[in-house]
Design a protein around this nucleic acid. Structure first.
Lengths: 209, 209
DNA sequence: GCCACAAATTGCACACTGTGCAAGTTCTGA
DNA sequence: TCAGAACTTGCACAGTGTGCAATTTGTGGC
């Protein structure tokens, strides 16, 4: 019985080291972004601050922005996971509302808002974030395709998923803009906004309430 | 009478040279992308091919991808212009449908589909395009805010505009994917898709027709 | 036409990015 | 304990993006 619960934890020293290194780099990048501003530091600084070589940094991330953006990725990862867990029978938009509303329970929610605000004056970071949303979109489109079968048009699915993500993004931006303090307890505020935006979508934006 | 119609044409040699140079660079970039593939050429090659120095290239564009992406920008520019011309009384979504449907009359429509397809296997180009859509979104949001006055919530406007652009993007992607030949006469196909996607949006995606 | 001024182009230097490769170090399993 | 796999690191190299100063080119007054 050397290995226990191999389904979820075969870490070993190697895996754990990689996880630690990855986290150390991401943390170093965030700390530098907070101190010097989003675009005002180099990869060398991140690497030195994380205690690894420049080359190792690039073994983990393609760019400084990607190291920052890993948190946004985890948020979208969570959204995709929750969506996949939802029962398949319900109307699609209700399922989406449930899934994206639940994402607000993610750890360190305040940091996500912070990164949103950072992207406002850092084009490279903004591009990285937009790219993250784009990749999430294609993954969700695939999941929805599988769920609905081949009877639904591709355009319907892509337009729907794109709109849902746009509304979620708008809700997060609105929330991040009006919640400058890194308050992790304001998840309810964000959830309310997401639900509101997606409800507007479900009603075809008929009333500008 | 040395100058005629100074309202729209004070070009002079200077202005015209800049326009020509800009166009020469963009054309050179597109030609190289067609020949070698989107990410397989350098700024030096573009500059040489356009007959300018490397430094001059960077006076016009921030990156190779931006030089490619200028056409997508012009498309979005056209959309914004048409939207601004629409009468202000109509329902917002109808105005949007009219505006984005009309954009398909842009010159060299086939090239736009081509660039969409290129972005599929070139992350940098994709990011540049996403960034273009993002900037267009904020501009349209501003225009809508002015049109509707301050009585409407910010979240409503951003969610609406984001959804409209997502649907338009989905329509273009669908069209570009199923129209591999650079056929400039297929504008009607694209327009039909855009109108269909936006109609779905207006109905809250109720029927997956 | 001439000339001073403004605007655009260019070469150069410099810091930084991103990647292949080979040598070194650390973990794994028998 | 040890061979081999996996990870890290230094190095080299091509490419990017930008400030600066020198040069060329268009503009407008005289």
């Amino acid at each position: 019985m050397e290995k226990v619960a191999e389904t979820t934890e075969p870490p070993g020293r190697r895996e754990q080291n990689k996880i630690d290194t990855r986290k150390a780099i991401a943390d170093a990048a965030l700390a530098l972004a907070r101190r010097d501003g989003p675009g005002s530091f180099t990869v060398d600084q991140i690497a030195a601050s994380a205690g690894v070589s420049r080359r190792t940094f690039f073994n983990y991330f393609h760019s400084a922005e990607e190291a920052l953006n890993i948190r946004m990725e985890s948020f979208l990862e969570l959204a995709i996971g929750i969506f996949a867990e939802q029962p398949a029978g319900l109307p699609l938009l209700d399922t989406m509302i449930a899934a994206f509303g639940a994402t607000t329970q993610v750890q360190n929610l305040g940091t996500h808002g912070e990164l949103f605000r950072m992207a406002a004056d850092n084009p490279e970071l903004l591009r990285a974030q937009l790219h993250s949303w784009e990749r999430a979109e294609t993954r969700i489109v695939q999941a929805v395709q599988e769920r609905l079968g081949s009877g639904v048009s591709h355009l319907y699915v892509t337009a729907l998923v794109g709109s849902v993500l746009s509304c979620t993004k708008a809700a997060m931006q609105d929330w991040a803009g009006e919640t400058p303090e890194p308050d992790d307890a304001s998840g309810a505020d964000l959830e309310a906004r997401i639900v509101r935006a997606l409800s507007l979508l479900r009603e075809g934006f008929a009333h500008p309430a």
